[in-house]
Every structure is written in C-alpha cells, then in structure tokens.
Amino acid sequence: MHLHTLGTDGPQVAPLALGCSGMSDRTAPADEADAVATIHAALDAGVTLLDTADFYGMGHNEDLIRRALRTGDREKALLSVKFGGLRGPDGAFVGVEGRPAHVKNALAYSLRRLGTDHVDIYRPARLDPATPVEDTVGAIAETVRAGYVRHIGLSEVGAETIRRAHAVHPISDVQIEYSLFSRGPETNGILDTCRDLGIAVTAYGVLAHGLLTGSYRQPAGGDPRAHWLPRFHPGNLPANLALADRLRPLAAARGITVAQLATAWVIARNRGSGTVVAVVGARRPHRIEEALAAADLTLTAAELRTLDEAVPPDEVAGTRYAAALMALLDSEQDGTRTAVRAG
C-alpha cells in the first residue's frame, strides 16, 4: 500500500487505520480472541495506525490492545489515543474535560493500561467548551517535550479551532466523521483548512455506522442506535437504506461489495485534497481483508461523479447524532462555542 504522512512531520501510515472501539462495545463486546486476531491481521498487513480512547469500554480497549501487542509489535504499531470523554458507572457519557491537569492525568493512566512509555498521537475526543483549546493543546505539547507523546491530533473540531490549535503546536491529523452520508467536512471549511495547514484527516464512520455496509436491513423490533443516531430512526431509515441501495449496481459493476465501494470513495479523497485516511472498525480478521481490497481500488473520475450523483448529501435523512450529542461537536458549531483565553 502507498503510505501517507500524517501532517507535515507525522508518521507514515497506510490509507487505512483500524478503529478499535467496537472491540470493547459495552452492549455487544467482541470475542477477545477475535479482537486480538484482528489487531494482528491489521499489523501484519501494514495497517499500523490503531485508534482507541481511554473511555472505550472504560479502559478495557486500552488493556485489550496491550494484551494484543506481540513482541516487536509496539515498534511498528502507531497508537492514536483520545481522551476527555467522561463516563459514569453505568457507562453513560457525563461530560467533556480538557483542562491541562486532566490531560496529564488521563495520559498517565493510558500509558499504564497500554503498557508503553509513549503514545504516538494524543488528542481530545471533543472540545471542552469551558477550556480554551490553546490550554488543552499546550498541555499536550508539554508531554511531547517530555517524550510521552509523539504527535498531537484533534477530533470533531471546526476550522477556527483547528487554526488556533495549530498555532500552539503542529497538528498531525483531525479525526472527523466523513463518508458518502456525511459530507460536512467538504462544506464547513474543515478539509480546506487541513489542506492549507498540511494537516491530515483521519475519517471515521466511513460506513455510516453500518448503513453503507450493503447488508443492513431495518430490524422488525427497531434498532437501539436510533436513540442516538437519527439516521436509524424509523422515520428516516427507509430513505437512507434506499440511498445505500443505489450503490449496489455500482459495486456489482466493479465486482466488489457496497462497503468496499464506500471505503474506496473515502480513500480516493486523497487526490487533490490532502491526506485522508479511512478509519475502519473491525472486530474479526476477515474484515481487515475486505478493507485491504478497498484500499487497492482506484476509482475513476467518472465513477466518483456517479457516486456523488447517486448519494446527494441533501437526501440523507437525519442528522449525524441526536441533538444533545450534536451540541458537543465543535465541528458543527461554526466556532461559536470555543472558549477564549482571558486577557
């Protein structure tokens, strides 16, 4: 696979990254043997960027990654860790924290759970509206100078916040939801800002949380995801599944699955728009094989136009998240909720 650089001086990575959150999902955790085998399959194939967070399974995911890394794997694995999502004993999210003291405390616990002396990319999962981004990034920069962190990333922040953070310390990449169903980064200035500053984009949700797998069908009893993902709401789901079905003949013409086509579309955004890496969630090794096939695809300009026409962004029904969760996304707020340093 052709390697890409995250940021101007970040690590070299494949066009795919492994999203590990589903391995520690509290409602349907993956079989640990399958999860470990999936991490091994990714690393062996050259997919070295592993995306995790200290709140995935309330620390379980970091513990799992530590147990999965074989002798010699730590040297080739790139650990991208998010922090700042606060959870209660019942697993519910109860807030966002970005104060400098929390940055260093959270990192200390992550290093212990991961069994390593450094993480490769450290990033706040969401912008803390009560803490200036300069303070959060400044605290991470101190850990970079101390050798505990190699690079700094961001997640779900808008263009203004990206520029302010980058002025404090170079940012390697911005993690943002980006797919055929979520085209916001193209219109809200995030992709343009990242390209201008030499910052990569690590795109998650490339399969729209399952809607773009090509195999998802509306369950008879409803889907629990509808409570926090409006696109799964009974009033929106039929329209979204109909959009996904438009991709079937296009995928069949290439002899691939809808999921592979949707993943290849994201990877194709590398052309002329800066580095874009697709974060693929997987819990079993064969999913890595499927994603690798997507990374090998080259979509023509005509095919890309056909895909854009098949799935117009304004025909996707429902917002990305429920209102309470959308309010946490600086990427959706046009910078209006960003805290500013006093003085």
Rank of each mutant, 00 (worst) to 15 (best):
T263P: 00
G272N: 07
L191H: 03
R283V: 15
V149H: 01
G343K: 12
G138P: 09
N270K: 06
G205K: 01
G221N: 13
T319E: 11
P129K: 01
E315W: 11
L229T: 02
A17F: 10
W265S: 01
G22W: 05
I140C: 02
C20Y: 04
H4I: 10
T116M: 03
D117A: 09
A293H: 13
N236L: 05
A130W: 04
G95H: 10
S172D: 05
N61W: 07
P238W: 07
T48H: 14
V280D: 00
G158M: 04
T27N: 14
D296R: 13
E32W: 10
R217N: 07
I140E: 03
Y216S: 03
R123A: 14
A167G: 03
A92S: 15
D223Y: 09
S110F: 02
A14S: 15
A208E: 07
H227S: 14
R305I: 06
R231H: 05
T338R: 13
R284M: 08
A159Y: 02
H209L: 05
H227R: 15
G221F: 11
R112F: 04
L107K: 07
Q333F: 10
A323R: 12
D196G: 03
M58I: 12
A45F: 09
A42Y: 08
A146G: 13
H166M: 06
G147Q: 11
A278G: 02
D63R: 14
K82D: 04
V149T: 03
G22Q: 14
G95Q: 09
T319A: 13
V137E: 01
D31T: 14
A323N: 06
L180I: 13
G88E: 11
M326A: 09
R195V: 06
S24I: 09
R305K: 11
P234T: 08
F181K: 06
R126S: 08
L229Q: 07
Q12A: 14
P234W: 03
A208N: 09
